[in-house]
Amino acid sequence: MRFPLISLKGVKITTIKKVKLKKIADILNGVPDVRQPGKANTTGEITYNFIQPNHLGIFNDIQCISEIKRHTSVDDSYFVRKNDILLKRLNPDIATLIIEDMSNTVFSSNLFVIRVLKDYYPAYIACLLENQGMTWINSNIVGSVAAIKSISAKALAALDIPSVDYDKQKAIGQMWLLYKKRKKLLENMIEEDQRLMAAVINSITASAEEEK
């Protein structure tokens, strides 16, 4: 049986343009060591809210925040802002998008902040980093034999990002955020079902022991 030949003459084949992450976002290291120069403070210690890698949840959430005290003030660029993307420097596995303003909050040197420039939707970049970029990142990771793996800002900056229309970026980014919410709801439902089953079994077991 012969299949008809399909001519591609006149068919427009579009290729998705790619752009390096460094071209569309600022990539920032965390709060520098206290010995590095900063704005002098004459009133004593300054307390900041502080985000560390173990504070990041898997549902695009921040589970808790600690505090850090410094004798020099932190530059404005180190304050976490809405739409910042947090990525672990060691063993990166998730991307966390800041969806609400956070006052007086800085981030650890074991985190990168990816601050997306205009024309790119932050949730879209976070989605790509978590779902596609992690494979690329892990292939460019330092110390792959060791238990602890580390990604550099240079390797992160070289990541290729598909440059699609802003409306498509927004649709994909919002889909990723909804996926995170649904995943969290499903896990909560499973935990509640497990508690319910445990309560029922305990009740039956207790009743059976009373009848002995």
Score class of each variant (00 low, 15 high):
Ala158Thr: 10
Thr47Cys: 00
Thr42Gln: 04
Ser103Met: 02
Asp84Ala: 10
Asn140Pro: 03
Ala126Asp: 07
Leu129His: 11
Phe50Trp: 13
Ala40Ser: 08
Gly57Lys: 04
Glu100Leu: 04
Gln36Ala: 03
Asn41Trp: 04
Phe59Val: 12
Val142Cys: 04
Thr42Gly: 03
Ser150Leu: 13
Ser66Gln: 08
Asp93Pro: 00
Val164Ala: 00
Thr105Cys: 12
Val116Tyr: 06
Gly38Glu: 04
Gly143Pro: 07
Ala146Cys: 06
Ile65Asp: 01
Gln132Val: 15
His71Thr: 13
Ser108Trp: 14
Gly44Gln: 10
Ser109Thr: 15
Ser103Phe: 12
Ile62Cys: 06
Thr42Leu: 10
Tyr121Pro: 11
Ala95Leu: 06
Leu117Ala: 08
Ala147Met: 14
His55Glu: 01
Ile65Met: 05
Ile137Trp: 01
Ala95Tyr: 10
Asn60Lys: 03
Val80His: 02
Leu111Lys: 07
Asp61Thr: 15
Val106Phe: 09
Asn54Glu: 13
Thr105Leu: 05
Met134Tyr: 10
Asn60Ser: 11
Lys118Gly: 11
Val80Lys: 00
Ala40Glu: 13
Pro37Ser: 07
Gly57Asn: 09
Asp93His: 05
Arg81Asp: 02
Leu117Lys: 15
Ser109His: 10
Lys82Asp: 02
Asp75Ile: 08
Asn91Pro: 04
Ile98Ala: 04
Leu90Asp: 05
Cys127Thr: 07
Asp84Asn: 08
Val164Tyr: 02
Gln36Asp: 05
Lys88Ala: 15
Thr96Ile: 11
Val116Ile: 14
Leu90Glu: 12
Arg89Val: 15
Ile125Asp: 03
Gly143Trp: 06
Val145Phe: 10
Ile125Phe: 03
Ile65Glu: 06
Ser73Gln: 07
Gln52Gly: 03
Lys69Phe: 07
Ile62His: 04
Lys39Trp: 03
Val106Asn: 08
Ala158Phe: 02
Lys118Asp: 15
Ala147Lys: 11
Ser108Met: 08
Ala157Glu: 11
Pro53Gln: 10
Val142Thr: 15
Val116Thr: 14
Val74Phe: 04
Tyr78Asn: 08
Asn131Asp: 12
Ile68Leu: 11
Phe59His: 13
Asp160Cys: 01
Ser139Leu: 06
Ile125Ala: 06
Arg70Ala: 02
Met134Asn: 08
Ser66Tyr: 00
Val142Ala: 13
Ser103Pro: 14
Ala147Arg: 14
Lys69Gln: 15
Asp76Ile: 13
Ala157Phe: 10
Leu90Gln: 12
Tyr78Ser: 03
Thr47Trp: 01
Val34Tyr: 00
Lys88Thr: 15
Arg70Gln: 04
Ile51Met: 00
Asp61Phe: 05
Pro162Ser: 04
Val145Ile: 12
Glu130Thr: 10
Ile141Arg: 01
Cys127Gln: 09
Pro162Gly: 03
